[in-house]
Every structure is written in C-alpha cells, then in structure tokens.
C-alpha cells in the first residue's frame, strides 16, 4: 500500500491481518442459554446439522465416492464445516438432555442414516452430489424464519451457517466463477 494515494480498498473492516478490527462487534457471541433450559431455535439448528452430517457419512461410504480421493477430500472438508456449525450452535447451550448432533469426525457411520435417508449403494457420484446440494439448500432456506425471529447474535450465527450451506451447494454443483 506504500506510495499509493486513495482509501484502502479493503479498509472498512480492517486489513486481513488486523484481526482485532476485522471481526464483528464484541456482542456478536450468542448469549448462553440458562443451563437445563431448552431452546427450540438451537434444537432445530442442531437437528438439521445432525441430519446433514449423516447424509455426508452415507455419501462418503458410497463405492462411487470412496473410489475418488479428490471427491472424498472435498466432502470430508465440507462435513468438517458442518461439525463446526454444530459445535458453534452448542456453545453455551446445555439442554436437559444434550442432543448428540455429530458422530466423531472421520468415523463414517452409514448405518446411522438408514432411518432418515440412505442412498442406494450403487448410486453414482453425480447423483449423490446433487442430492447433497439439494439438502444443503433446503437446510439454508429452512433457517430463514428462525433467523428473522431470533436475537441479533444467534441470528447472525444462523445466517452465517445458512450462507455457508448455500456455498456448499454451489461447490457441490461444481459452479465456477
């Protein structure tokens, strides 16, 4: 930026290295829910993440997917982002009986998905990816009411998660800029 006149192009929220100023306001962390109290908004979000995690596990177990190391890496990375979503939603939330939204990363459990969604073992990768993209987009859309009806900080977290899911759908469908 030396010797160039004008306002820094990316200045409004600080430079990328300036983490102190590049974040959101200090009140951006959702307030903890009193221990032992249920929060339907978080419960819905956690159950949606659990469902997506199961779908990724089932898809990763497909022969057509596991044979493709690049695709496996891509889906594993997206799965990890869903695990991070669940963890963020769970922060400060200890309901009466804690839901278990995720199986441990790296241990796909295709049988767990049998109750809700289960691709045929012979499903080809393209079909499986389209189904995942649809599930991501549905999950993102389903959050709108809770985003509009919640306190600022949790609304912002859910909006970010919804945006992430729409990004996943774009990635799965192979869209390039």
């Amino acid at each position: 930026m030396l010797g160039v006149t004008g306002v820094a192009l990316l200045s409004a929220c600080g430079s990328p290295a300036d983490t102190k100023d590049s974040g959101n306001p200090p009140n951006s962390v959702p307030k903890p829910v009193p221990a032992g109290k249920r929060d339907p908004v978080r419960d819905r979000a956690l159950s949606a993440e659990a469902e997506l995690l199961k779908r990724y596990d089932a898809t990763l177990a497909l022969a057509s997917v596991s044979a493709d190391s690049g695709l496996t890496a891509k889906l594993t990375a997206i799965r990890a982002e869903h695990a991070a979503h669940a963890e963020a939603i769970q922060q400060g939330y200890t309901p009466p009986s804690a839901p278990t939204p995720s199986s441990p990363p790296g241990s796909p459990t295709p049988s767990a998905s049998a109750t809700t969604w289960s691709p045929q073992a012979t499903t080809d990768a393209k079909t499986a990816l389209a189904a995942l993209a649809g599930a991501e987009q549905d999950a993102a859309s389903a959050r709108t009411a809770d985003i509009l009806g919640s306190d600022g900080a949790i609304a912002m977290l859910l909006a970010s998660i919804a945006a992430s899911e729409s990004g996943h759908a774009a990635l799965l469908l192979g869209g390039t800029a």
């Binding site: 983490t19 959101n24 951006s28 945006a163 992430s164 729409s166 990004g167 996943h168 774009a170 800029a177």
Partner: peptide, 24 residues
C-alpha cells in the same frame, strides 16, 4: 450475506464454515 458467500466460494474454489464471521 448468502450471495457474497456463494460468490466467494466460486472465486476461491472452496468453502468456509462461517462466512461473514472472520473471527470464527
């Protein structure tokens, strides 16, 4: 926010867990 996240994914070729929340 969603539109910015999707455009960023397309430019970057990969996703992030928390678009718009750089501290996360």
């Amino acid at each position: 926010l969603t539109d910015a996240a999707v455009r960023a994914v397309r430019w970057r070729g990969s996703s992030v867990a928390f678009p718009g929340l750089p501290e996360r």
